[in-house]
Write a protein that binds this DNA or RNA. Structure first.
Lengths: 228, 228
DNA sequence: GCGCACATTAACGTATACATTAACGCATCT
DNA sequence: AGATGCGTTAATGTATACGTTAATGTGCGC
């Protein structure tokens, strides 16, 4: 029986390994939408027995990345425009609540610094037309905001929604306009949070999310990703 | 190997049976918070082998009802006041979005009739001081609203949150004031939906949820359910 | 060619076996 | 009494075996 050591000295179970590997391959489009393989095939590919692979696939199914169909294996789910609409409706509901919770807490400046830094880094990246740096700072900003909200359920739910949307977002990454609006909105949200204006923070965030999702959904419609 | 036929002629897998049984026992407080048993113990109790029980427990863990701890079995999780706060923050974000989506759709009267009926049934139950009938109509109202929103992710997420909160709500069922405010709010929400006023529907729903969750959280604090 | 019946096969759900090792119990030392 | 070390045990994660049956392929009749 095989044990794999992870970088920090802990032990990664084979279920976790299978989950991580398969999930990564889906997110990287190594297994594109529609890809289908039997439990044993996935297991063969990973050099594991079927049992941990099965557990991993069931977990990935509960997260919406695959569909397990008896005798037909596990199929990588496409992300349809309807799926994306559902995901963005949920994000539009939840993320502003996160901004609201953060603003309501009136956190000390030291706690808000990483968020402010991320926002500033986005502004700088935009000035240098460095889209990759901008995306990296953007991700940081959103993660920090969700974490600062201090609601574990919320953070987990939002993370799961981001994961579901990931592939569709990657398709459009280079198709989106320069993130001038986004950057301005991020800064405005941070300002509202710093002044403890919860309502305004939520309003601004919602506007940010709605504008962003409209753009993305339009691009997806254009790119016709129904087969993704 | 055992197969169980369900009422509608389909076949219930042993995983599903284990999941359903254990979940029911948790929700009914047969397994109270803190109850702990090993995989094999649960399996013995259900007359199954360990494999399907393990899968069921992992699923229940992902839903927040149990915590699986290697060598210590699966423990039924209490619902702490912090948990409830997290859950209600999430519901406060998501449910008004559902009301908004329903109102925005401007559904035909026939589609809204079941919702209107549920609301009317609550009013009638209140007049007769029939709390059970009121609770039943209340549940119907909320389920219908979430379903009418037409977002599967939203419905699943909300259902999961309700399940998590279920036990705590049961503790307080007889402690809450007569649902006069609730009933009025339900009716107002339905009116906003009928007139297609999405903003107003969301605003009213949010107020409804906030008032309801404040009451419940206060009762839980009083009942000191930290041990539940 | 199409539809149906039947036989075969293998995928899956489940049960069981096995290896690892965390947890426990006990003895000893300070 | 508390801390430490050691040996034993059993709970879990994993591998493998087994029974069920859905899916597929083949043959036959119209």
């Amino acid at each position: 029986m095989e044990r794999t050591s992870s970088a920090d000295g802990g032990r990664e179970s084979l279920v976790d390994k299978a989950y991580r590997e398969i999930r990564q391959r889906i997110l990287d489009n190594v297994y594109p939408a529609g890809h289908r393989a039997l439990e044993q095939e996935y297991a063969d590919e990973l050099g594991l027995s079927r049992t941990p692979v099965r557990e991993a696939l069931l977990k990935l199914q509960s997260e919406g990345l695959v569909e397990v169909m008896p005798r037909h294996g596990a199929r990588v789910l496409p992300v349809s425009p309807d799926d994306m609409r559902d995901i963005y409706e949920m994000l539009t509901a939840i993320e502003p609540m996160a901004a609201e919770l953060v603003a309501r807490k009136k956190l000390p400046a030291a706690d808000l610094k990483p968020l402010i830094d991320a926002s500033r880094d986005m502004t700088a990246a935009l000035k240098h037309d460095d889209l990759d740096a901008w995306a990296s700072a953007d991700e940081r900003y959103h993660r920090l905001l969700i974490a600062l909200a201090g609601n574990r359920l919320l953070a987990e739910t939002v993370q799961g929604l981001w994961d579901r949307a990931h592939r569709a977002r990657m398709v459009t990454l280079r198709l989106r306009p320069r993130p001038v609006n986004s950057t301005r909105e991020h800064n405005a949200i941070v300002d509202a949070i710093r002044t403890g204006d919860a309502k305004e923070a939520a309003r601004l965030y919602r506007h940010h999310r709605e504008r962003g999702s409209s753009e993305l959904l339009a691009l997806l419609e254009k790119a016709r990703i129904s087969s993704l």
